[in-house]
Simulated assay, not measured.
Amino acid sequence: MTAAPAELRIDRPSVADGAALWRIARESGSLDLNSSYSYLLWCRDFAGTSAVVRAEGGDAVGFVTGYVRPADPRTLLVWQVAVDAAYRGRGLAAALLDGLTARLMAERPITAVETTITPGNTASERLFASYAARHGAEVGREVLFGAGLFPDGPHDPEVLYRIGPLSRPR
């Protein structure tokens, strides 16, 4: 399992973290940016299935947002993962994913993780491939939402990555 460096800690988000999550997502350069309001709601309603990494002063410098799928309560859907540019290259995205799934697996029978990745997002592809390897899981891929389904202009397809079954990390 990948852990955060000692000076950083993984925690549940709070509503007070919503603005930081929005800023980190906006500055990521690769995520679809949701409204600032949605990040506030996410930190309120889905804090139990999300995580932040905090710097020494307590500020959120990275996050993973997710939810347990209502139609498949053994599956965590990872919505977004992002780390502030000043903190990249330290393995924080991997530590966030590992920390969140370890917490959830201790609370409920999570056996799979799903996420969507647009073609060409090599960083996300590598992050989730390495996650699967650490958890002894297979990775299935299929187009979940084709480009033509998006009403707001050109959008790459969203490819569903299904990782499972999960085992305890190595």
Rank of each mutant, 00 (worst) to 15 (best):
G62V: 06
G62D: 06
G62K: 05
F63M: 15
F63D: 14
V64F: 02
V64M: 00
T65Y: 04
T65Q: 06
T65R: 03
Y67G: 04
Y67H: 07
V68A: 03
R69K: 10
R69D: 11
A71I: 05
D72S: 03
D72M: 03
D72K: 03
D72E: 01
R74T: 05
T75S: 00
T75I: 01
L76R: 07
L76V: 09
L77W: 10
W79C: 06
W79L: 08
Q80T: 05
Q80W: 10
Q80L: 12
Q80H: 08
V81T: 04
V81P: 00
V81D: 00
A82F: 11
A82S: 11
A82W: 12
V83D: 01
D84K: 13
A86H: 12
Y87V: 11
R90V: 15
R90N: 09
R90F: 10
G91D: 14
L92V: 01
A93Y: 04
A94E: 14
A94N: 12
A94Y: 14
A95V: 05
A95K: 08
A95R: 08
L96E: 08
L96T: 03
L97S: 15
L97W: 12
L97I: 11
D98T: 05
D98F: 07
G99E: 10
L100G: 11
T101K: 01
T101Q: 02
R103E: 13
L104Y: 03
M105R: 09
M105Q: 07
A106G: 13
A106P: 12
E107T: 07
E107V: 06
E107W: 07
E107G: 01
R108L: 15
R108G: 06
R108A: 14
R108Q: 15
P109H: 03
P109D: 09
P109M: 09
I110W: 10
T111A: 14
T111R: 12
T111I: 05
A112V: 00
A112M: 03
V113G: 00
E114T: 10
E114D: 10
E114V: 03
T115Q: 05
